[in-house]
């Protein structure tokens, strides 16, 4: 393996890893807040991809401009999912863990079905002529950095910084922190738990919405598109530690790199085995993931 090829693998793994991290962080955030694994997370991402596609085709704007739109739309989707489904699942008196898994799993199947009904099963692509970044790439010393992924990775980093500021510097962040520490006690200091949860779901969905909007620039879109990404997101979250934002970032990058490296060493068809081995290896040493406390 030449140095150039090695650099290319690291660069590609890093760029993809940052996007994986952004897909995973919303899931981790929601889990940290209220101990719920959202099995419809991938479907949220798929909806964001359709939102971008729709904005590009109907309004005629560039996918980059459509990003805020997708993020806003997903905030509504996330908040609605909480108010319409998860809130009720939380009230269950028995088997609360299973109820949440299957309520969100049912929601996932429902979203896929509705998407197929509304958008049909056709494979969609953001039209190249309205896609400023699509297919563009820059070359640095023989290493190719595709612009969509590069910009996507940059946005991902910015999103993580923003999220960190939000959690540490704002009242909402403090309420979020307090609620995750002790959801019962916050009521005493006048924080509406339900409101925090609703906003938390909106935020989590927005983050995966942002990731979906980035993917829409260079990935195809159809109702079942999210399944492989969702699996990676679950592994990333467990690897980083449920509830840890920083863990999601580190784990995402590790997963991206592990995938790229495995595909070079083993037959590419087995590249996910590298991710799984990394994950199981870490879990063996740290049963709660790299940065997990829950």
């Amino acid at each position: 393996m030449t140095a150039q090829i090695f650099l290319q693998i690291v660069a590609s793994g890093l760029l993809m890893g940052l996007i994986y991290a952004l897909i995973a962080v919303g899931l981790s955030l929601i889990f940290g807040l209220m101990d719920v694994v959202n099995f419809a997370h991938g479907e949220f991402m798929m909806l964001a991809m359709y939102a971008v596609f729709g904005a590009v085709v109907i309004i005629g704007i560039d996918p980059l401009m459509a990003m805020p739109l997708a993020v806003a739309a997903l905030f509504v989707v996330g908040a609605t999912a909480y108010l319409g489904v998860v809130q009720h699942a939380m009230r269950a008196k028995a088997n609360i863990g299973m109820v949440q898994i299957f309520a969100t799993f049912g929601l996932a199947v429902l979203i896929r079905g509705v998407s197929q009904f509304l958008f049909t099963s056709d494979y969609r692509n953001v039209p190249a002529e309205r896609n400023l970044l699509g297919g563009k790439t820059i070359e640095l010393g023989g290493v190719f950095l595709p612009l969509p992924q590069l910009v996507g990775a940059g946005i991902s980093v910015l999103a993580f910084v923003g999220l960190w500021l939000l959690i540490t510097r704002t009242d909402f962040g403090k309420a979020l922190e307090a609620t995750r520490e002790d959801a019962g006690a916050v009521a005493l200091v006048g924080i509406d738990k339900n409101r925090v949860f609703t906003l938390g779901w909106g935020l989590g969905a927005s983050l995966v919405g942002l990731a979906g909007a980035i993917l829409a620039i260079f990935y195809y879109i159809h109702p079942d598109v999210a399944a492989p990404f969702a699996l990676i997101a679950y592994v990333t979250v467990a690897l980083g530690g449920f509830g840890s934002v920083f863990g999601a970032l580190v784990a995402g990058i590790m997963v991206g790199l592990a995938e790229a490296l495995t595909a070079t060493i083993l037959p590419p068809a087995l590249k996910s085995v590298g991710i799984y081995a990394l994950y199981l290896g870490v879990l063996f040493i740290r049963p709660k993931g790299l940065f997990g406390s829950l």
């Binding site: 090829i5 590609s12 993809m16 492989p228 990404f229 595909a263 590419p268 068809a269 590249k271």
Partner: peptide, 20 residues
């Protein structure tokens, strides 16, 4: 002679090998 997993999230490493 590259076998890849259908519906992969990314084909970067695979294409890298084709290119090489």
């Amino acid at each position: 002679d590259i076998k890849y997993r259908a519906n992969s999230p990314s084909l970067t490493a695979e294409v890298q090998q084709l290119k090489a």
